[in-house]
């Protein structure tokens, strides 16, 4: 489905990604884990076109994503939940969701998508008239995911969905993500919470200093000695 091939990317003069290659297959849940500043968010930015890459290629369902502007990416079926939720705080829950189906194709089936999102997150339906800024942290994260689902994506990319949530909410959030994956949405999960991500995902990539340093089945990486030492303690 998604294939990153030997990607190099820079922030100004600073190289942020060094030959990153990854592959995500249809229906999978793949985790991208690594410490802060390793290049996880940068990898997502490269995929969504927010950061141009200097060499390598990105392919999504046979389409070359090079030079596709950021706002067009979602039309290909890739949707991202940005770090920290980043909902539109001054707008209502309903309006946030509406904006999730901004591309014209998605807009045509907006009502249907909204029904679907409300089935997954009934809480959002209860809160639909509320300003997004007044939601709790967990609800905001739900809204951010719901908004991303409004475009009926084939691939959902989540940037640190557990960020800033209480442990009990983190657990619920991961259950939700698993449920969404089971509904047929391919998931790329970027997480600092390495143990939880590795337990949840079928496969995982480990990134450090802008390089992919490990790849494997989620639970096999859990027993990977260097990873245990570095992230699990």
């Amino acid at each position: 489905m998604l294939k990153l091939n030997d990607i190099n990317a820079f922030y100004g003069d600073l190289q942020a990604l060094w030959g990153v290659s990854m592959e995500i297959k249809d229906g999978e849940m793949v985790a991208l884990v690594g410490p802060n500043g390793a290049g996880k968010t940068t990898t997502l930015k490269v995929i969504t076109g927010l950061l141009p890459f200097t060499s390598g290629s990105i392919e999504f369902n046979g389409n070359d994503l090079r030079r596709v502007p950021a706002h067009k990416i979602v039309e290909f079926g890739i949707s991202q939940v940005p770090e920290g939720g980043r909902v539109f705080a001054g707008m209502t829950v309903f309006e946030n969701l509406e904006l999730g189906s901004f591309p014209s194709e998605a807009r045509k089936v907006k009502d249907e998508s909204m029904k679907w999102v409300f089935e997954i997150f009934p809480r959002l339906e209860e809160r639909k008239k509320q300003q997004a800024g007044t939601l709790s942290g967990g609800e905001r994260q739900m809204l951010a995911i719901g908004r991303a689902l409004m475009s009926k994506p084939k691939l959902l990319m989540l940037d640190e969905p557990s960020f800033g949530l209480a442990p009990i909410l983190v657990q619920q959030m991961f259950v939700m993500i698993e449920k969404i994956n089971k509904l047929g949405v391919t998931v790329l999960l970027v997480e600092q919470n390495v143990r939880a991500a590795l337990e949840l995902a079928q496969r995982a990539y480990v990134i450090e200093n802008g390089r992919i340093i490990g790849e494997g089945k989620g639970d096999s990486l859990l027993s990977f000695e260097s990873i245990r030492a570095a992230y699990l303690g």
């Binding site: 969504t48 927010l50 502007p69 950021a70 706002h71 067009k72 990416i73 979602v74 039309e75 949707s79 991202q80 940005p82 980043r86 909902v87 539109f88 705080a89 001054g90 707008m91 904006l99 999730g100 901004f102 591309p103 998605a106 908004r147 991303a148 409004m150 475009s151």
Partner: peptide, 16 residues
Amino acid sequence: RATTEDWEAASLVGID
């Protein structure tokens, strides 16, 4: 309005 609040998030939902 969305762009005013957060242009990156706006661009992720497909707003030019």
